[in-house]
Design a protein around this nucleic acid. Sequence first.
DNA 1: GGCACTCGCCCTAAAACCAGA
DNA 2: GTCTGGTTTTAGGGCGAGTGC
Lengths: 353, 353
Amino acid sequence: MTEHKADPGAAVLSPAPAEAKRRSRQSGRVTLAAVARRAGVSLMSASNAFRCPEKLRSDTLARVQTAARELGYIPDVLAGTLASGQSPVVGVLLPTMRNSSFERYLSGLRRAARETGRRIILSFADSPESEAEAVETFIGLRVGGVVLIGGDHSPGTLQLLRQTATPFIETWLLPADAGKGVGYDAAAAMTAMTGLHLQAGRRVLALIDHDGALAARYRLRRPAFEAAVAAVPGARGIIHPVGATDSFSEGAAAMAAILAQAPQVRAVICPTDIIAAGALFECQRRGLRVPQDIAISGWGNYEISGQTLPALTTVALDAEAIGHAALLRLMPGSGETCPAQDTGFQILRRDSA
Amino acid sequence: MTEHKADPGAAVLSPAPAEAKRRSRQSGRVTLAAVARRAGVSLMSASNAFRCPEKLRSDTLARVQTAARELGYIPDVLAGTLASGQSPVVGVLLPTMRNSSFERYLSGLRRAARETGRRIILSFADSPESEAEAVETFIGLRVGGVVLIGGDHSPGTLQLLRQTATPFIETWLLPADAGKGVGYDAAAAMTAMTGLHLQAGRRVLALIDHDGALAARYRLRRPAFEAAVAAVPGARGIIHPVGATDSFSEGAAAMAAILAQAPQVRAVICPTDIIAAGALFECQRRGLRVPQDIAISGWGNYEISGQTLPALTTVALDAEAIGHAALLRLMPGSGETCPAQDTGFQILRRDSA
DNA sequence: GGCACTCGCCCTAAAACCAGA
DNA sequence: GTCTGGTTTTAGGGCGAGTGC
């Protein structure tokens, strides 16, 4: 069936122009209608084949599926979302790539997405502005939900989510948005970690404390540290704040600063394994022995923590479980019971402390 | 204007049901129509205010903008894409989170996106299946383009992209898809790196070679290594393959295996800085001095490479530039001249080799 | 500057079809 | 041949915005 552009002048007379115009706007992609035509069923049956397969007789269903496969049909999520008002897409916002826990977190999210037929898209944001921007992109895409890390979000971000009634969930920390979040008890972990150093007989402890924007996932730790130190007579705690960027060089610089300020420090608690590794490298450069001269502990059980010499004592948390539970909890309609919200943690004692 | 759900029983009698039905399907979100109403302009003017502002008188424009801000209007990208057939969203596919070059790559992409008014969504894929799945999600979302890393993609992935006529670009390596890709010359970098070890007088060199799925971004290196070694009389090259997972422990294991197999090895060229750091840690554990006993070089100039002791000699590449150029090249319509496709590299000599 | 139509799909309602009882 | 119950079709109206006239 050949067809050329209709002469605009003849438009009124010929039946063709409407047809031609329609064609010109079509994307050329395989549509559901094409699948239906090929399978010899109605549009509705084709639609139902994807949406509620149980409504079709199995042979009809098979016909549609075959046709879809043969044609290479990929559902237009946009059109579906627009029409139904429901999107299978979940937007996940990560603060940084540098935290290897997030890799496991993501695989938990992916597993849950596979289980519930959802699709995940990602974005990274390390500042309030980029966070709001990313969330706006998600909302513009009319995602079905948004998964956030930490409880520290720019007012703009939260307002956007709320005013558009986009379901979202905050993860990683407890207590998060009461009854909704998924995470572990960072304060308890800090209490345990500080206790470990104290029980080893160390009395002058330093805490490297992340601050800055979007650093709320560290915020619960400091009070727990201070309380634990205060509970032991003769113990002293030093707080050294660092910027929110997680890097080896920050760890090295922090270690240098702490040693300059308080040479008698015997243990350094780091907010991440990256910082801890950086601090360890700095000690190596100075010829300080770890843990004999000074103990170092990290946080997060990143892969590197098991590989440095000495290996790093750290806090292991179940990022995979957090991710998995987060997605399931995001949409109550899943029909599944909501998993427990506390995914726990574990102090992983290795050689550095 | 209060309104409650219409009583289903009364549906037939009341004039409300149609209205109620309509309402029930509406998202409740702020639409362009609402903005137009509030600004007292037609729907078209409101649309134009965003799409081609120059078509409006400035006071009309301002009225629309004010109304949009007051209402908290967020354009429905879905509807816009569906209607126009063009999407401002670009899907970026990353192989892994562990490569800190990708962070810079991403910021280049983001900068370009900001410059051209596009939006970026991300996905990670480390296997052919997850790659195809991610690309399918992008295509289902009818993204305007897809940015890929490396030239090694599952046939399914490429076929999907081609059959749906989705614009895409392969980055990172040269020569990529001739005339379209953006990247650096990995073979030349390997030649230079091998030369560095040879010039230092080392004659038994080992290459740790990534293989496995999706590892094409390493594939050009080995022949260059072999050629460089062959060109120097008395030099010998050992190839040690490792799986595609980029981890410290892989590096450590590879180093152990190489030492067992060829104790006389004097230099090890690693495919990434992570592997190199892992290899270095293994040497430390064995009391081998780097670089006196054995030289190690990495690849990628990840942050860790400057922090270990000794710091790692590595290949620095301009990931930011790759990302930036990739997005600009993806859509020729940008009106900008396409930047050069070779973003170059640099051998960063530090202490480990 | 505005009207009518379109993008691809969803959804409701009601009618049509197809067994078997 | 009518009734029944499940399956499929027909018809039409959206969803929110862009496009051609």
